[in-house]
Amino acid sequence: MRISESNNGAIIHIRNIAKLYKMGTEIVHALRDVSLDIFPNEYLAIMGPSGSGKSTLMNILGCLDTPTTGIYNFKGDDVNEMTDNDLAKIRNKEIGFVFQTFNLLARATSLKNVELPLVYSGVSSSDRRERAEQTLKDVGLGDRITHKPNELSGGQRQRVAIARALVTSPSIILADEPTGNLDTKTGEDIMKLFKDLWKKGNTIILVTHEEDIARHAQRIIRLRDGLVEHDGVNPNQLLV
């Protein structure tokens, strides 16, 4: 049973993806055989035990990394054919990353951090400022634009990171354990923010190993040893 190679409107279309790492003589199968389609305005949680390949998959989806074998079409374009510059362009325009450790530039203010993706897409400085300010307001940080990361709480830092992911209006937001470094309460606030973004029409892919977090998603994929163990609609989606 072969699924059509056309995207059927999927943003992400991957087939039989594998990722191998050579560690000396040993070969690590981070991903063995993964196929999935992700459609606009999906809210997807990727779950699985540690070492199951969640981050590896995420990096491939986000065009930070390329699969060893398999097909990856992003909005109909073959990612395997792309040059480094093409990939950088996709990361810049189509994808917004949110990391567990925030990954903000320590020496730059919230505003400068959020402006950075726009710098690389060539937006003029006044437009940049305006858009970054608006996005910071949207995530509830309108009063923290001149603060540097070390002057912000963990939750606020993650909001800056989310604003940075959103500012280019990407097709997809990829978040790898975005609440991993936050306490439960703050984590819930961040999840609320993702929920709002989803409701506004954003497409969100979230990696987590906490069931509580995954409950927010519409669809859950469970990985084990580099294989998809389960892929289905989340019947218990929390809609508040």
């Binding site: 930070l64 950088a88 362009k89 810049n92 325009k93 530039l105 897409s121 940075r164």
Partner: peptide, 12 residues
């Protein structure tokens, strides 16, 4: 920092 810049779209 270089990793971050690349992740958000900096070219080589």
């Amino acid at each position: 920092e270089i990793g971050i810049r690349k992740a958000i779209g900096a070219k080589k």
